[in-house]
Design a protein around this nucleic acid. Sequence first.
DNA 1: CCCTGATTCGC
DNA 2: GCGAATCAGG
Length: 193
Amino acid sequence: MSWTDERVELLKKMWGEGQSASQIAKELGGVTRNAVIGKVHRLGLSNRSSGGGSTDSSKTEAKAKPAAKKEAAKPKVKEAAAPAPEPAAAPAPRPAVSPARKAIIPAGQPLPPQPSANEISPEALAKVNEVEKKSKKLSLLELTERTCKWPVGDPATDDFWFCGLPVQSGKPYCEAHVGVAFQPMSSRRDRRR
DNA sequence: CCCTGATTCGC
DNA sequence: GCGAATCAGG
C-alpha cells in the first residue's frame, strides 16, 4: 500500500481528531501503526518534544500549541440523595437471563455486573448507552482477553452480543462499562432490611 | 501485559 | 519516502 492522496488525507483527518496511530492504521488497512506514525512525522504533523538534537536544524518552536481538546469538562450532576431515580429507559445493565437457560460465559472471565439494587450514576448510564451504539457486537467466540465482555441484550434471543470495545487495562470491560460494573461501593449503604 | 507516540536506520 | 525495530513512557 502506498500513501495515496486519499489515504494521506484520511490520515490527517483522523490524526487531527486525536485518533491513535493504531486505529488509523486499522482504518486504512494495509499498514501498521508504525507506518502511520512514520508518515505522521514525515508530514510534520506530530508536534512533540524537541529535546533531542536529532536532525532538527531550524524550526523555531513557536510554543503556540493549539492544545487539542482532550477532555471536555462535564457539568457535574449531583444526585444528592435521590431516593431511587429510576432511569426512564433503564438499559438493564444486567442482562435478563432466561430462567431455563443460563448464558454461557467464557471460562475464566468474570461475569458482569450484578448491579441488582445498585444505583449507578446517571452519567455512567448515559455513557454506557452511547457506547452500546458503538459496540462491536461481538459474539462469544470473538471475545478476547482485551475486548469488553459486557453483554448486551437478551441471551435468549438473537438480539444479544458483547460490547467488544477495547478494554484499557486488565479489566474485563471497556471504560464505560467499567464505570457501571465497578461501583465505588457507596451509594446506599443504609440498605434497610 | 496492554497500549501510546517517537526515533532510528536499512531499504 | 517508507516502515520495522526499537525506544520511552502510561
